[in-house]
Write a protein that binds this DNA or RNA. Structure first.
Lengths: 120, 120
DNA sequence: TGCCATACCTTGCACGGCAAGGTATCTTCT
DNA sequence: AGAAGATACCTTGCCGTGCAAGGTATGGCA
Protein backbone atom coordinates (compact mmCIF):
# COMPACT_ATOMS: atom_id res chain seq x y z
CA UNK A 1 0.00 0.00 0.00
CA UNK A 2 1.19 3.45 -0.76
CA UNK A 3 4.35 1.92 -2.08
CA UNK A 4 4.68 1.96 -5.82
CA UNK A 5 4.78 -1.80 -5.75
CA UNK A 6 1.21 -2.78 -5.22
CA UNK A 7 1.67 -5.62 -7.62
CA UNK A 8 4.74 -6.90 -5.83
CA UNK A 9 2.50 -7.69 -2.91
CA UNK A 10 -0.10 -9.30 -5.10
CA UNK A 11 2.49 -11.61 -6.53
CA UNK A 12 3.16 -13.20 -3.18
CA UNK A 13 2.36 -16.84 -3.22
CA UNK A 14 1.48 -16.71 -6.89
CA UNK A 15 4.81 -16.83 -8.67
CA UNK A 16 5.61 -20.37 -7.54
CA UNK A 17 2.35 -21.79 -8.82
CA UNK A 18 2.79 -19.85 -12.05
CA UNK A 19 6.08 -21.55 -12.59
CA UNK A 20 4.49 -24.90 -11.87
CA UNK A 21 1.80 -24.05 -14.39
CA UNK A 22 4.33 -23.30 -17.09
CA UNK A 23 6.30 -26.41 -16.29
CA UNK A 24 3.15 -28.46 -16.49
CA UNK A 25 3.30 -28.01 -20.24
CA UNK A 26 6.95 -28.96 -20.55
CA UNK A 27 10.44 -28.48 -19.10
CA UNK A 28 12.17 -25.13 -19.12
CA UNK A 29 15.32 -23.56 -17.84
CA UNK A 30 15.61 -20.63 -15.47
CA UNK A 31 16.04 -17.67 -17.75
CA UNK A 32 13.37 -18.98 -20.01
CA UNK A 33 10.90 -18.94 -17.12
CA UNK A 34 11.90 -15.40 -16.29
CA UNK A 35 11.19 -14.30 -19.83
CA UNK A 36 7.91 -16.12 -20.15
CA UNK A 37 6.60 -14.84 -16.85
CA UNK A 38 7.70 -11.39 -17.78
CA UNK A 39 5.76 -11.60 -20.98
CA UNK A 40 2.65 -13.03 -19.29
CA UNK A 41 1.58 -9.76 -17.81
CA UNK A 42 2.79 -8.47 -14.46
CA UNK A 43 3.92 -11.72 -12.93
CA UNK A 44 7.58 -11.13 -12.27
CA UNK A 45 10.27 -8.56 -12.27
CA UNK A 46 13.58 -10.16 -11.49
CA UNK A 47 15.78 -13.22 -11.68
CA UNK A 48 16.34 -12.79 -7.97
CA UNK A 49 12.87 -14.16 -7.51
CA UNK A 50 13.12 -17.14 -9.78
CA UNK A 51 16.31 -18.89 -8.82
CA UNK A 52 15.67 -19.05 -5.10
CA UNK A 53 12.11 -20.05 -5.84
CA UNK A 54 13.22 -22.88 -8.08
CA UNK A 55 15.45 -24.08 -5.28
CA UNK A 56 12.54 -24.11 -2.89
CA UNK A 57 10.33 -25.92 -5.33
CA UNK A 58 13.10 -28.41 -5.87
CA UNK A 59 13.66 -28.99 -2.18
CA UNK A 60 9.94 -29.50 -1.70
CA UNK A 61 9.94 -32.08 -4.44
CA UNK A 62 7.56 -30.17 -6.66
CA UNK A 63 10.04 -30.00 -9.50
CA UNK A 64 13.04 -32.02 -10.58
CA UNK A 65 15.97 -30.83 -12.64
CA UNK A 66 18.64 -31.94 -15.05
CA UNK A 67 21.49 -30.25 -16.82
CA UNK A 68 21.60 -30.08 -20.54
CA UNK A 69 25.10 -29.74 -21.89
CA UNK A 70 25.36 -28.79 -25.47
CA UNK A 71 28.76 -28.12 -26.99
CA UNK A 72 27.41 -25.20 -28.91
CA UNK A 73 25.51 -23.43 -26.11
CA UNK A 74 25.70 -22.46 -22.48
CA UNK A 75 24.88 -25.35 -20.19
CA UNK A 76 21.31 -25.05 -19.05
CA UNK A 77 19.53 -26.41 -16.07
CA UNK A 78 16.10 -27.61 -17.02
CA UNK A 79 13.26 -28.05 -14.57
CA UNK A 80 10.42 -30.50 -14.80
CA UNK A 81 7.26 -30.68 -12.77
CA UNK A 82 6.76 -33.77 -10.62
CA UNK A 83 3.53 -35.53 -9.78
CA UNK A 84 3.53 -33.88 -6.43
CA UNK A 85 4.01 -30.59 -8.21
CA UNK A 86 0.93 -31.26 -10.28
CA UNK A 87 -1.03 -31.97 -7.18
CA UNK A 88 0.10 -28.71 -5.64
CA UNK A 89 -0.78 -26.89 -8.79
CA UNK A 90 -4.30 -28.28 -8.77
CA UNK A 91 -4.70 -27.29 -5.18
CA UNK A 92 -3.51 -23.83 -5.96
CA UNK A 93 -5.97 -23.48 -8.79
CA UNK A 94 -8.76 -24.20 -6.32
CA UNK A 95 -7.41 -21.88 -3.66
CA UNK A 96 -6.88 -19.17 -6.17
CA UNK A 97 -10.32 -19.46 -7.70
CA UNK A 98 -11.91 -19.28 -4.30
CA UNK A 99 -9.79 -16.41 -3.11
CA UNK A 100 -10.06 -14.36 -6.25
CA UNK A 101 -13.78 -14.99 -6.23
CA UNK A 102 -14.05 -13.61 -2.71
CA UNK A 103 -12.10 -10.50 -3.64
CA UNK A 104 -14.10 -9.95 -6.79
CA UNK A 105 -17.34 -10.35 -4.92
CA UNK A 106 -16.32 -7.87 -2.29
CA UNK A 107 -15.03 -5.40 -4.83
CA UNK A 108 -18.14 -5.67 -6.92
CA UNK A 109 -20.55 -5.46 -4.02
CA UNK A 110 -18.97 -2.25 -2.80
CA UNK A 111 -18.76 -0.63 -6.16
CA UNK A 112 -20.41 2.68 -6.91
CA UNK A 113 -24.16 2.34 -7.36
CA UNK A 114 -25.32 2.25 -10.94
CA UNK A 115 -28.11 -0.27 -11.11
CA UNK A 116 -27.64 -2.89 -8.48
CA UNK A 117 -29.29 -6.20 -8.92
CA UNK A 118 -27.13 -8.24 -6.66
CA UNK A 119 -27.82 -11.81 -5.98
CA UNK A 120 -26.38 -13.63 -2.94
CA UNK B 1 4.12 -22.87 -0.89
CA UNK B 2 4.25 -26.09 1.00
CA UNK B 3 3.17 -24.15 4.00
CA UNK B 4 -0.38 -24.86 5.06
CA UNK B 5 -1.17 -21.22 4.58
CA UNK B 6 -1.30 -20.76 0.86
CA UNK B 7 -4.07 -18.24 1.28
CA UNK B 8 -2.13 -16.22 3.81
CA UNK B 9 0.28 -15.37 1.04
CA UNK B 10 -2.48 -14.57 -1.38
CA UNK B 11 -3.93 -12.09 1.05
CA UNK B 12 -0.84 -9.91 0.91
CA UNK B 13 -1.63 -6.50 -0.39
CA UNK B 14 -5.30 -7.34 -0.62
CA UNK B 15 -6.59 -6.92 2.90
CA UNK B 16 -5.97 -3.19 3.00
CA UNK B 17 -7.93 -2.53 -0.17
CA UNK B 18 -10.69 -4.83 1.06
CA UNK B 19 -11.03 -2.67 4.13
CA UNK B 20 -11.12 0.42 1.96
CA UNK B 21 -13.81 -1.22 -0.11
CA UNK B 22 -15.96 -1.90 2.92
CA UNK B 23 -15.42 1.58 4.25
CA UNK B 24 -16.40 3.02 0.91
CA UNK B 25 -19.97 2.06 1.76
CA UNK B 26 -19.90 3.58 5.24
CA UNK B 27 -17.89 3.90 8.46
CA UNK B 28 -17.11 0.89 10.63
CA UNK B 29 -15.17 0.07 13.72
CA UNK B 30 -12.32 -2.39 14.04
CA UNK B 31 -13.98 -5.52 15.25
CA UNK B 32 -16.77 -5.02 12.82
CA UNK B 33 -14.32 -5.06 9.94
CA UNK B 34 -12.78 -8.22 11.30
CA UNK B 35 -16.13 -9.94 11.34
CA UNK B 36 -17.21 -8.76 7.94
CA UNK B 37 -13.97 -9.75 6.29
CA UNK B 38 -14.12 -13.06 8.02
CA UNK B 39 -17.57 -13.66 6.63
CA UNK B 40 -16.61 -12.54 3.12
CA UNK B 41 -14.74 -15.71 2.30
CA UNK B 42 -11.11 -16.26 3.09
CA UNK B 43 -9.99 -12.70 3.47
CA UNK B 44 -8.74 -12.58 7.03
CA UNK B 45 -7.91 -14.62 10.02
CA UNK B 46 -6.93 -12.38 12.88
CA UNK B 47 -7.34 -9.06 14.62
CA UNK B 48 -3.57 -8.87 14.61
CA UNK B 49 -3.85 -8.05 10.95
CA UNK B 50 -6.51 -5.42 11.15
CA UNK B 51 -5.42 -3.03 13.85
CA UNK B 52 -1.91 -2.45 12.59
CA UNK B 53 -3.31 -2.19 9.11
CA UNK B 54 -5.81 0.45 10.15
CA UNK B 55 -2.96 2.40 11.68
CA UNK B 56 -1.05 2.27 8.44
CA UNK B 57 -4.06 3.33 6.43
CA UNK B 58 -4.59 6.15 8.86
CA UNK B 59 -1.01 7.33 8.70
CA UNK B 60 -1.17 7.28 4.93
CA UNK B 61 -4.27 9.41 5.01
CA UNK B 62 -6.46 6.82 3.34
CA UNK B 63 -8.85 6.67 6.26
CA UNK B 64 -9.81 9.00 9.09
CA UNK B 65 -11.19 8.02 12.45
CA UNK B 66 -13.33 9.21 15.31
CA UNK B 67 -14.37 7.79 18.64
CA UNK B 68 -17.96 7.09 19.39
CA UNK B 69 -18.74 7.17 23.07
CA UNK B 70 -22.06 5.77 24.02
CA UNK B 71 -23.00 5.47 27.67
CA UNK B 72 -24.60 2.12 27.01
CA UNK B 73 -21.81 0.49 25.02
CA UNK B 74 -18.08 0.07 24.76
CA UNK B 75 -16.38 3.07 23.18
CA UNK B 76 -15.72 2.35 19.56
CA UNK B 77 -13.29 3.80 17.15
CA UNK B 78 -14.90 4.28 13.77
CA UNK B 79 -13.01 4.57 10.53
CA UNK B 80 -14.04 6.46 7.44
CA UNK B 81 -12.55 6.40 3.99
CA UNK B 82 -11.03 9.65 2.71
CA UNK B 83 -10.98 10.95 -0.83
CA UNK B 84 -7.44 9.81 -1.15
CA UNK B 85 -8.57 6.43 0.08
CA UNK B 86 -11.13 6.26 -2.68
CA UNK B 87 -8.51 7.06 -5.22
CA UNK B 88 -6.30 4.30 -3.89
CA UNK B 89 -9.19 1.92 -3.97
CA UNK B 90 -9.91 2.70 -7.61
CA UNK B 91 -6.29 2.20 -8.43
CA UNK B 92 -6.30 -1.10 -6.65
CA UNK B 93 -9.33 -2.27 -8.55
CA UNK B 94 -7.45 -1.69 -11.77
CA UNK B 95 -4.27 -3.33 -10.55
CA UNK B 96 -6.18 -6.26 -9.22
CA UNK B 97 -8.20 -6.77 -12.37
CA UNK B 98 -5.07 -6.72 -14.45
CA UNK B 99 -3.13 -8.97 -12.17
CA UNK B 100 -5.89 -11.49 -11.62
CA UNK B 101 -6.48 -11.50 -15.34
CA UNK B 102 -2.86 -12.38 -15.98
CA UNK B 103 -2.98 -15.21 -13.47
CA UNK B 104 -6.23 -16.55 -14.83
CA UNK B 105 -4.92 -16.45 -18.36
CA UNK B 106 -1.80 -18.30 -17.44
CA UNK B 107 -3.67 -20.86 -15.40
CA UNK B 108 -6.19 -21.41 -18.13
CA UNK B 109 -3.68 -21.62 -20.93
CA UNK B 110 -1.72 -24.31 -19.13
CA UNK B 111 -4.69 -26.34 -18.11
CA UNK B 112 -5.07 -29.98 -19.04
CA UNK B 113 -6.00 -30.50 -22.67
CA UNK B 114 -9.68 -31.10 -23.28
CA UNK B 115 -10.52 -29.20 -26.44
CA UNK B 116 -8.28 -26.23 -26.85
CA UNK B 117 -9.46 -23.36 -28.92
CA UNK B 118 -7.35 -20.61 -27.53
CA UNK B 119 -7.59 -17.14 -28.81
CA UNK B 120 -4.95 -14.46 -28.15
C1' DT C 1 41.88 -7.97 -26.59
C1' DG C 2 37.72 -6.25 -25.09
C1' DC C 3 32.86 -6.37 -24.82
C1' DC C 4 28.29 -7.96 -24.88
C1' DA C 5 24.85 -11.50 -24.26
C1' DT C 6 23.45 -15.56 -22.07
C1' DA C 7 23.28 -18.48 -18.47
C1' DC C 8 23.80 -19.57 -13.67
C1' DC C 9 23.56 -18.11 -8.62
C1' DT C 10 23.63 -15.54 -3.67
C1' DT C 11 22.86 -11.96 -0.21
C1' DG C 12 20.26 -8.84 2.56
C1' DC C 13 16.37 -5.98 2.80
C1' DA C 14 11.44 -4.77 3.32
C1' DC C 15 6.87 -5.58 3.81
C1' DG C 16 2.60 -7.42 5.49
C1' DG C 17 -0.22 -10.99 7.66
C1' DC C 18 -0.49 -13.76 11.81
C1' DA C 19 -0.45 -15.92 16.48
C1' DA C 20 -0.11 -14.81 20.91
C1' DG C 21 -0.58 -11.93 24.44
C1' DG C 22 -2.34 -7.91 26.99
C1' DT C 23 -5.87 -4.19 28.90
C1' DA C 24 -10.39 -2.51 30.23
C1' DT C 25 -15.39 -2.47 30.80
C1' DC C 26 -19.93 -4.28 30.79
C1' DT C 27 -23.21 -8.18 31.43
C1' DT C 28 -24.61 -12.57 33.09
C1' DC C 29 -24.48 -16.52 35.77
C1' DT C 30 -24.04 -18.78 40.24
C1' DA D 1 -19.97 -10.70 45.72
C1' DG D 2 -17.10 -13.25 42.59
C1' DA D 3 -16.16 -15.55 38.38
C1' DA D 4 -16.76 -15.96 33.55
C1' DG D 5 -17.55 -14.40 29.15
C1' DA D 6 -18.26 -11.12 25.63
C1' DT D 7 -16.87 -6.98 23.41
C1' DA D 8 -13.82 -3.64 22.33
C1' DC D 9 -9.22 -1.84 21.92
C1' DC D 10 -4.09 -2.59 21.05
C1' DT D 11 1.20 -4.36 20.60
C1' DT D 12 5.07 -7.43 19.78
C1' DG D 13 7.90 -10.55 17.23
C1' DC D 14 8.14 -14.05 13.80
C1' DC D 15 8.26 -15.77 9.07
C1' DG D 16 7.81 -16.30 4.15
C1' DT D 17 8.41 -14.26 -0.17
C1' DG D 18 9.64 -11.15 -3.80
C1' DC D 19 13.22 -7.90 -5.15
C1' DA D 20 17.40 -5.13 -6.24
C1' DA D 21 21.97 -5.53 -6.44
C1' DG D 22 25.82 -7.94 -7.06
C1' DG D 23 28.69 -11.83 -8.58
C1' DT D 24 30.68 -15.85 -11.76
C1' DA D 25 31.60 -18.12 -16.10
C1' DT D 26 31.61 -18.94 -21.09
C1' DG D 27 30.78 -18.32 -25.88
C1' DG D 28 30.68 -15.17 -29.98
C1' DC D 29 31.99 -11.20 -32.38
C1' DA D 30 34.51 -7.14 -33.70
Amino acid sequence: MVSSTTTTQLRRGVVGPCILALLSTGPRYGLQLVKELDRSGQLLSSQGTVYPLLNRLHESGLVSSYWEMSDSERPRRYYEITNEGRRELDEFRNDWAEFAGAVNTLMASTKAPSSESESR
